[in-house]
């Protein structure tokens, strides 16, 4: 489904990814965890096409997308929910949903179908994106991506600043989408519970070139993560 080989990318003189590799099978949900600043967001942005690849290969199904522009990748079925939601603040909720649909010339009925699965957005349709609460914005960002029926969804910290009840809702949407049309998901997370409850496989990113696979049931007792998230010493595990 998605194969990343020896990926190199960074900002200016600063290289963040220095030969990163990972493979996702169809319908798989893969979580990548790791401390702030290790390069998780850079990875997702590079996959979305927002950061230029400086080396390595990215293949989506049978297509080499390494040098493709973000819209080309989107047409091949790549969806992206960025960290911080990146809602179009000057567009209404409805217009936020419409951008991708219109850009890709999909039928307008897609919006109604999406709204059926996201009923909480319906009363807000004509409000500006900037007037939504954080949780509503996160749902909108997810709905905006799912409306385009992507084959692969890149999710960057969807749990950030979100209440647990809403997290359950987001989890449900993702599970449903996989069940209904076989969505593959690459999830970058800080929230171990959310990641472990959703993912089939979990990796801990330890550097710009290395991610170590962790049994997802043992995620909650992983020494590195515990040390990072709770400041606990190794021997406590």
């Amino acid at each position: 489904m998605l194969r990343i080989r020896d990926l190199r990318a960074g900002y200016g003189e600063l290289m963040v990814l220095t030969g990163f590799g990972i493979t996702l099978e169809p319908r798989q949900i893969v979580a990548i965890l790791g401390r702030n600043g290790i390069g998780k967001t850079t990875l997702v942005k590079t996959l979305a096409g927002l950061i230029k690849t400086r080396g390595g290969r990215i293949t989506l199904e049978d297509d080499d997308i390494t040098d493709m522009s973000p819209p080309q990748r989107a047409r091949l079925g790549l969806g992206y929910v960025p960290q911080g939601r990146e809602i179009f603040s000057k567009l209404t909720v409805r217009e936020n949903l419409l951008v991708g649909v219109r850009a890709r010339k999909l039928p307008l009925s897609t919006i109604d179908e999406t709204l059926e699965t996201f009923p909480t957005l319906r009363p807000k349709l004509n409000d500006l994106g900037s007037s939504l609460s954080g949780g509503q914005q996160q749902l909108l960002a997810l709905a905006r991506a799912l409306a385009l029926r992507p084959k692969l969804l890149l999710l960057d910290e969807p749990s950030e600043g979100i209440q647990p009840s809403l997290l359950d809702e987001i989890r449900q949407h993702l599970v449903d989408a996989r069940k209904r049309y076989g969505l593959t998901i690459l999830l970058v997370e800080q929230n171990l519970d959310f990641a472990s409850s959703l993912a089939d496989r979990a990796f801990v990113m330890e550097s710009g070139s290395n991610a170590r696979e962790v049994d997802r049931d043992k995620l909650l007792s992983d020494a590195t993560l515990l040390h990072e998230f709770l400041g606990a010493n190794g021997e406590q595990t």
Partner: peptide
């Protein structure tokens, strides 16, 4: 309007 509001996000959604 989307391209002016947030060009990166617009391009990721398929806007040239």
């Amino acid at each position: 309007r989307a391209a002016s509001d947030n060009p990166d996000m617009a391009s990721v959604l398929g806007v040239e």
